[in-house]
Write a protein that binds this DNA or RNA. Sequence first.
DNA 1: GCCAACGTTGGC
DNA 2: GCCAACGTTGGC
Length: 139
Amino acid sequence: MAYWLFKSEPNTWGWDDQLAKGEAGEEWDGVRNYQARNFMREMKIGDLGFFYHSMKEKSVVGIVKVIAEAHPDSTTDDPRWECVDIQAVRPFVKPVTLDQIKAEERLADMVLVRNSRLSVQPVTDAEWQLVCTMGQTKP
DNA sequence: GCCAACGTTGGC
DNA sequence: GCCAACGTTGGC
């Protein structure tokens, strides 16, 4: 199973919105970046991801699960863009801030640190375990 | 609120 | 196909 990170600006779509969707989950739509789209194409049902709040908060705030593999993005007619559906799994007991991640040398190669603008990113097993530990949250 | 970095677009 | 210009993102 693979791990991912989904980034969102909380004023646009935040953890609370995701949580409110419950079991049904929601499309991760609006991505207009090839790299991010390609990662979504690689996702499988059951893969887990971090839910990251950008801008003011800059924290990993929860864990989500992929519940539908890549399909056309319903917010555009442009067939190039696809998205997956994700469901909130559990919130982080303690959100892990970008500052904490940057301060942890074992996380220096996280895509979040290397390429902060990419909105959908892969996360390695080691990174997954460590960030969950930092958030006092079960992986 | 600013600005650097990046990705995309479009003219040549 | 290259590259300059532009728009957007997101950290600071």
